[in-house]
Simulated scan of single mutants.
Amino acid sequence: MSQTVFCRKYQQELEALPFPPLPGEKGQEIQRTVSKQAWEEWQAQQTRLINEKHLNLLDPQTREYLMEQMERFFDNRETDQAEGYVPPSR
């Protein structure tokens, strides 16, 4: 049976990440507070931002920007969107 975590994005118990997704304390914090579902959704959002905004991941300011966007995403605050992106209808 999978472990669960109280997800800060969805405010409910959901499947936990199997390991920290980032190195260090930040990765540990994410593993304790973010569900696997929320992390996968963030990964898709991050990929859209990187591709559409032509972000350079070698640039420290880009990494800082993405970390800020990640925190906003998990806290259900408004985040930047890729221009022209239309979420799929359910």
Score class of each variant (00 low, 15 high):
residue 39 W to S: 02
residue 4 T to A: 09
residue 45 Q to F: 03
residue 47 T to M: 12
residue 18 P to E: 05
residue 40 E to M: 06
residue 66 L to V: 00
residue 16 A to V: 09
residue 65 Y to G: 06
residue 50 I to T: 03
residue 56 N to H: 12
residue 11 Q to E: 03
residue 76 N to W: 07
residue 39 W to F: 13
residue 38 A to V: 04
residue 43 Q to G: 01
residue 87 P to K: 08
residue 46 Q to K: 15
residue 82 A to D: 08
residue 85 Y to M: 03
residue 58 L to P: 11
residue 21 P to N: 04
residue 84 G to H: 11
residue 44 A to P: 00
residue 2 S to K: 09
residue 26 K to R: 11
residue 55 L to P: 11
residue 24 G to P: 08
residue 8 R to P: 01
residue 36 K to Y: 15
residue 58 L to C: 14
residue 35 S to Q: 05
residue 69 Q to A: 01
residue 77 R to A: 11
residue 3 Q to T: 11
residue 5 V to R: 00
residue 10 Y to M: 02
residue 26 K to H: 10
residue 51 N to F: 14
residue 65 Y to H: 14
residue 64 E to I: 10
residue 22 L to H: 04
residue 34 V to S: 06
residue 71 E to V: 05
residue 3 Q to V: 07
residue 55 L to R: 06
residue 33 T to P: 02
residue 54 H to A: 13
residue 88 P to E: 05
residue 24 G to W: 05
residue 81 Q to V: 08
residue 84 G to F: 07
residue 1 M to A: 15
residue 73 F to E: 01
residue 68 E to V: 10
residue 44 A to T: 07
residue 78 E to K: 06
residue 34 V to R: 00
residue 63 R to W: 07
residue 57 L to F: 09
residue 33 T to V: 04
residue 53 K to C: 12
residue 12 Q to S: 05
residue 15 E to W: 02
residue 31 Q to K: 14
residue 76 N to I: 01
residue 74 F to T: 01
residue 51 N to K: 15
residue 87 P to F: 09
residue 71 E to N: 13
residue 12 Q to M: 09
residue 37 Q to H: 03
residue 89 S to D: 03
residue 68 E to G: 02
residue 73 F to L: 03
residue 30 I to G: 01
residue 16 A to H: 07
residue 29 E to D: 07
residue 73 F to I: 09
residue 86 V to A: 06
residue 61 Q to K: 09
residue 47 T to F: 10
residue 87 P to T: 05
residue 82 A to M: 04
residue 5 V to P: 00
residue 62 T to E: 10
residue 44 A to V: 10
residue 21 P to T: 05
residue 32 R to D: 14
residue 53 K to N: 13
residue 61 Q to I: 04
residue 82 A to K: 06
residue 34 V to Y: 01
residue 35 S to Y: 10
residue 71 E to Q: 13
residue 86 V to K: 08
residue 1 M to V: 14
residue 80 D to W: 09
residue 71 E to C: 04
residue 62 T to F: 12
residue 55 L to G: 13
residue 20 P to H: 05
residue 11 Q to H: 14
residue 70 M to N: 03
residue 69 Q to V: 00
residue 15 E to L: 08
residue 17 L to M: 02
residue 30 I to H: 04
residue 90 R to Y: 08
residue 20 P to C: 04
residue 65 Y to V: 06
residue 66 L to W: 02
residue 32 R to P: 08
residue 52 E to C: 11
